[in-house]
Design a protein around this nucleic acid. Structure first.
Length: 871
RNA sequence: GGGAGCUUAGCUCAGUUGGUUCAGAGCAUCUGCCUUACAAGCAGAGGGUCAUUGGUUCGACUCCAAUAGCUCCCA
């Protein structure tokens, strides 16, 4: 069969994905083997795959494919979360475009629209994962709003409520005035913005003086209830205990002292607005100040504000400033940079707001979750970077606001009676039963809480509930797959997800949810900027795959992403991947071209290449085992790339030319197969394709499931001999090139060495690689020859017409080398003469230094001799 | 303001227990090649005071401290 001259990725990738699926290779069921389990960090159902996902999912696929080939029962569970805020926002917008408001159609109808939306767009991300080659067990696809999953969420809510972890209370929370919902602390992003600092003068009671307060939020002065100064601030001692008037509305407020106030900021006077600022809220409680909420939920001014009622907070900010200026209360303004909180989902400026919400007490849940990690029951990679972050958050954890004022999500299973009593139960029937019992009558009307739960309150159960561990505790699948093996996720959701999954795992099952956590960095562009929609610097993944092929894209992503480091994505990497595919393809073409020629071949003159590559390969397989233990995927891929390109293609295959015999061909194919196996996790499609092109295969003989052989011991001696041979080849070629000797020009190679046996087996290779006429061993320098030095050996290139000279360049190089060796030697000698070194250093170290000294002396002798004959 | 991390070749990064046969890779650059697998290729070359300063040590890219610059997290 004729093999195409270039590799065509498109058709090949579609073909093999369908083949693997058809064979059921991705599907896992419990059996005798050890499980290797990964649960996908569920992407938003609203999402399309971006580069961050691509990095994440590629890593997971690499781990799962490797595990599958190492004989584990590999199970990768895919799925998505329902993304309350994001999805609801999409659906609301879609309805708005049709002139429909969600309040008008009601909860039921709205949810129907939302489900339709989910059916239509929710699967996009799965198709993209398939395109990328992800070997997920699609039969296990889970969605956080599935019926059973929802039951699990409700069940744990009820459990935690009964255990006293969940409470309902009025507290200050982060409010998203656009999405009209509470947010958790983690859903707020703080970013620097340019703001105006307004210096507002408050008239003092019983005086014509004024006190000046600096604020970036003049609209909130309408909610001011006090002015605070530092108790030791000499400027304001006389004012403590006095009263001032809020400009424009003339509210009489006290001037209080509190050490919290920063004397250096602004004027050293702080206005206190407990309803609209976290710190003011605390101060308000401490000093028993009233709370005046001047904002409506949508960020407009409330009736309590008295002025500008119903107008937006940002509009009012300017209007108030103008009015203050007009009335003479505005002393001055300056521009400053401060940090504002933004909603991760809607990007609205978050408003601190006092509101009644449901909270989960975190302290007692966090403690065991921290301990397990500190005791390394769960190992974080890379640890040095993220363990401290994890610990810090866990030690300072705040209660988690878990209610959201939305409809798309798990409705809070709490019912209220007319008196406001709360009944928390898994079903309405149970809630009624509770109410009947409590009230001693069946004449009760209950109303369920309107709010839903934070999306993360469902996804923290993910590793347990994808195996029904909550709804069917102790079931066989759960027992088999849980705890899962490794969680791969971005460092940005360490708190959202990782920490809470560990808490949930320990609390609900008594076991950790996974043994390893592998954190990836952020994907940035090649200039180091975060990828974002607004910058437009995020490449379209589908387009990238169409252009380069999924294998090349996976290669491009992995080749530059060491664990935990940010990945500076550059399309160049994909191009390199594409070239690599081409290289592999051509290796296939070469090997296949040998097939019809094996009969012509007699036994090769040396089996050194075969021996050498065998040991080289064994050493690599062993190293690979270590690399995967330490999640050093990028390094492993780099080394594999070099092994294939340099050692296999440029070295081994060249050394086997013009063609091997039948046995040699067989061995060559088996080497190639092993390389393909090692590469398969990174580049699944082309490796499977080449595997099948290389030899006819039985029906169930596919690379994806072919077990990777265990490494045998590598003979370091033979590996070294290969390196020597490579050095000799390079030295001769370099010398020829420097003397501008054409490749076809005949010459003789004389070798002066004390390790003749190392050369002898390789002479046929020297002949085939160097087009040398004759090779001889010598003990003396021949006449009329160019010299070059390899280690302790001297090579002479004899060309009758050329004088016995070296180029200046070559001399310089030798001199440079000599200087280096001499200073090297000096340092070794100093060391060996140093009493304290001999006393303190281990005996192996001293021996090694002595060996180094001998070797170096020998090399120096050789170079000096060469230089002498050159001059 | 509190905390963490980073700083090695033009760029992106390796360098695992301190001991110059380890200062390395890829990309980029330069030179020579259309050698019958591959020009998406082959064969070579150049390039670094390992941020700075001090300390520990017989010995520091590696450990410690300070300084500078960068990044991230938290408030």
């Amino acid at each position: 069969m004729e093999i195409a001259k270039t590799y065509q990725h498109g058709a090949v990738e579609a073909k093999w994905y369908a083949h693997w699926l058809g064979k059921g290779y991705f599907h896992s069921t419990p059996d005798q083997r050890q499980p290797y389990t990964i649960v996908i960090p569920p992407p938003n159902v609203t999402g399309v795959l971006h580069m961050g996902h691509a990095l994440n999912e590629t890593i997971q696929d690499i781990l799962i494919r490797r595990a599958r080939a190492m004989g584990y029962n590999a199970c990768w569970v895919p799925g998505a979360d329902h993304a309350s805020i994001a999805t609801e926002a999409r659906v609301v917008n879609q309805l708005k475009a049709q002139g429909i408001r969600k309040q008008d159609i009601g909860r039921e109808a709205f949810l129907q629209h939302a489900w339709e939306w989910k059916e239509k767009y929710g699967g996009i991300i799965y198709e993209q994962l398939k395109k990328l080659g992800c070997s997920c067990d699609w039969q296990r696809t889970t969605f956080t709003l599935d019926d059973t999953y929802s039951r699990a969420v409700i069940r744990v809510f009820v459990q935690l409520y009964r255990e006293g972890f969940i409470y309902r209370g009025q507290r200050m929370i982060n409010w998203d005035p656009v999405a009209l919902t509470a947010l958790s602390d983690e859903e707020v992003e703080y970013r620097e913005v340019q703001s105006t600092l307004f210096y507002v003068q408050y008239p003092l009671e019983g005086s014509t003086d004024r006190i000046t307060v600096a604020t970036t939020r003049p609209e909130t002065i309408l909610g001011d209830v006090a002015i605070a100064v530092h108790p030791e601030d000499p400027r304001y001692q006389h004012l403590i205990g006095k009263y001032a008037y809020v400009p424009l509305i003339d509210r009489r407020i006290p001037i209080i002292a509190d050490a919290y106030v920063d004397q250096a900021f602004g004027t050293g006077c702080l206005k206190i607005t407990p309803a609209h600022d976290w710190n003011d809220y605390q101060l308000g409680i401490k000093h028993q100040l009233p709370i005046i909420d001047v904002l409506n939920p949508d960020g407009t001014m409330s009736a309590a504000a008295q002025l500008f009622v119903g107008e937006d907070r940002f509009v009012v900010r300017n209007k108030i400033a103008d009015l203050l200026r007009e009335k003479g209360f505005l002393a001055k303004t300056e521009t400053i940079v401060n940090k504002n909180g933004f909603s991760q989902r809607s990007n609205a400026v978050v408003e601190p707001r006092i509101s009644t919400q449901w909270f989960l007490k975190m302290k007692d849940l966090a403690k065991p979750a921290l301990d397990e990690v500190l005791q390394r029951q769960i190992q974080i990679h890379p640890e040095e970077r993220f363990l401290n972050t994890y610990r810090h958050w866990m030690e300072n954890v705040q209660d988690w606001c878990i209610s959201r004022q939305l409809w798309w999500g798990h409705r809070i299973p709490a019912w209220y009676d007319a008196q406001g009593n709360i009944y928390v139960a898994e079903t309405a029937e149970e809630a009624y039963a509770q109410a009947h019992k409590a009230m001693g009558t069946t004449d009760v009307q209950l109303h369920q809480d309107e709010d839903v739960l934070d999306t993360w309150f469902s996804s923290w159960l993910w590793p347990i509930q994808v195996f029904q561990g909550i709804t069917q505790p102790g079931n066989a699948e759960w027992r088999y797959y849980y705890p899962t093996t490794v969680l791969v996720t971005g460092q940005d959701i360490i708190f959202f997800w990782v920490a809470r999954m560990i808490m949930a795992g320990l609390h609900f099952t008594g076991e950790i949810p996974f043994r390893y956590v592998y954190f990836t960095g952020m994907v940035r562009d090649k200039l180091g900027r975060k990828m974002s929609k607004s910058l437009g610097n995020s490449p379209d993944l589908s387009q990238l795959i169409d252009q380069y092929g999924a294998d090349a894209v996976r290669f491009g992503i992995m080749i530059s992403s060491p664990a935990g480091n940010d990945l500076l994505f550059d399309e160049k990497g994909c191009e390199q991947g594409l070239h690599f595919c081409n290289k592999l393809w051509n290796a296939l073409r070469l090997i296949k071209s040998w097939e019809p020629r094996i009969n012509e071949q007699t036994k090769p003159a040396t089996d050194f290449p075969i021996k050498w590559f065998h040991h080289r390969l064994q050493a690599f397989i062993r190293q690979t085992e270590k690399d995967f233990e330490q999640f050093r995927l990028s390094e492993n891929l780099k080394n594999l790339y070099t092994l294939i390109w340099e050692d296999f293609c440029s070295t081994y295959l060249e050394w086997m030319k013009p063609a091997p015999d039948a046995d040699g061909l067989q061995i060559t194919k088996s080497y190639f197969e092993t390389l393909l196996q090692l590469l398969h996790p990174y580049m699944p499609f082309i490796t499977e394709e080449i595997y099948h092109q290389l030899s006819p295969r039985d029906a169930n003989d596919d690379l994806i499931i072919k077990p990777i052989p265990a490494a045998t011991d590598a003979d370091e001696e033979i590996v070294q001999q290969g390196l020597l041979l490579k050095d000799v080849l390079a030295a001769v070629r370099q010398t020829l090139q420097m003397h501008q000797i054409k490749a076809k020009q005949p010459y003789e190679l004389w070798i002066q060495t004390t390790q003749r046996e190392k050369y002898e087996t390789c002479i046929p290779i020297l002949h085939s690689q160097l087009h040398v006429q004759n090779i001889v061993f010598t003990d003396d320098a021949p006449e009329q020859a160019i010299r070059t030095v390899v280690g302790k050996d001297i090579l002479y290139i004899k060309i009758p017409e050329l004088a016995s000279t070296a180029s200046d360049h070559q001399k310089q190089n030798l001199e440079k080398e000599l200087n280096y060796l001499k200073s090297f030697l000096q340092k070794i000698e100093e060391k060996l003469q140093n009493e304290r070194f001999l006393q303190h250093a281990k005996s192996e170290v001293v021996e090694r230094e002595q060996k180094k000294k001998q070797d170096t002396l020998e090399k120096i002798r050789v170079i000096e001799e060469t230089l002498r004959t050159l001059s």
